[in-house]
């Protein structure tokens, strides 16, 4: 299974302001791409475009060499997106939250998988509490449990480290690297400084132009 997300000449104009212009991007298996840039530089917008939520851009997107509009279904079933907001219902328990995600992902209903995923993010013992009663960091972990629950090659993560404690951050970083080593790809924005590894690459968004450094 190959994995290649390409953007050619990507540009996004919001209300007559160019967030970025002429951005070329190539994301392949085995790497972590970190999108950097000051607030308002269009990081979240870029992630939304690359994850297929926004159709409002110029340029072209390719998934495994096929134009995105043709490959959309294949792309969506290879994608796991964690947004700025955790996407977790406060009135449901972590288990119920994950059950919905499992069904939406098209995976068979398996409580064992859900319990294992929750244990993997350090939420063993909290499975049946309403998520609203958990701390902000624990709620974020419920969302992160999806990384274990639904194996997908391409991860698009918007600020996944929000509200996570120090050990959690280290674990998550290790998890991202492991995913890259296993042949997955990670696209991430974060204010947190990621530790340097050979698989990490930076893409910088700035005043109207995208710069790439390696």
């Amino acid at each position: 299974m190959t994995l290649r997300l390409q953007a050619r000449g990507l540009a996004c104009e919001r209300d007559d302001r160019w967030l970025f212009e002429d951005l070329d991007l190539d994301i392949v298996a085995g790497e972590i791409v970190r999108i950097e840039g000051p607030n308002g530089s269009g990081k979240t917008t870029l992630l939304k475009i690359l994850s297929g939520q926004l159709a409002d851009y110029q340029g072209e997107l390719f998934w495994n060499e096929a134009p995105m509009h043709q490959a959309r279904d294949a792309f969506l079933s290879s994608l796991l997106y964690l947004g700025h907001a955790a996407g977790v219902k406060a009135t449901l328990t972590p288990l119920e939250n994950l059950a919905w995600y499992q069904a939406m992902a098209g995976d068979p209903d398996s409580e064992a998988d859900r319990l294992a995923a929750l244990e993997g993010v350090g939420l063993a013992g909290f499975e049946d509490l309403p998520t609203g009663q958990l701390s902000a960091g624990q709620q974020r972990r419920v969302a992160l449990a999806r990384l274990e629950l639904t194996p997908r090659p391409l991860w698009v993560l918007d600020e996944p480290f929000t509200a996570i404690d120090r050990e959690g951050v280290a674990e998550l970083e290790t998890r991202l690297e492991a995913h890259a080593h296993d042949g997955g790809a990670v696209l991430v924005t974060t204010h947190h400084a990621l530790r340097a590894t050979p698989v990490l690459r930076h893409v910088r968004l700035g005043a109207g132009n995208a710069h790439v450094r390696h």
Binding site: L23, G30, P151, D182, G183, P198, H214
Partner: peptide, 27 residues
């Protein structure tokens, strides 16, 4: 604005992604 080194990292990626399951259930 091409990125250098992407081809190299493909080489390093090793075996095809094991961490992928095709979605089964339907609508």
């Amino acid at each position: 604005m091409r990125m250098s080194g992407t081809e190299a990292s493909v080489g390093k990626a090793g075996p095809a992604t094991p961490s992928h399951r095709e979605p089964r259930g339907g609508l």
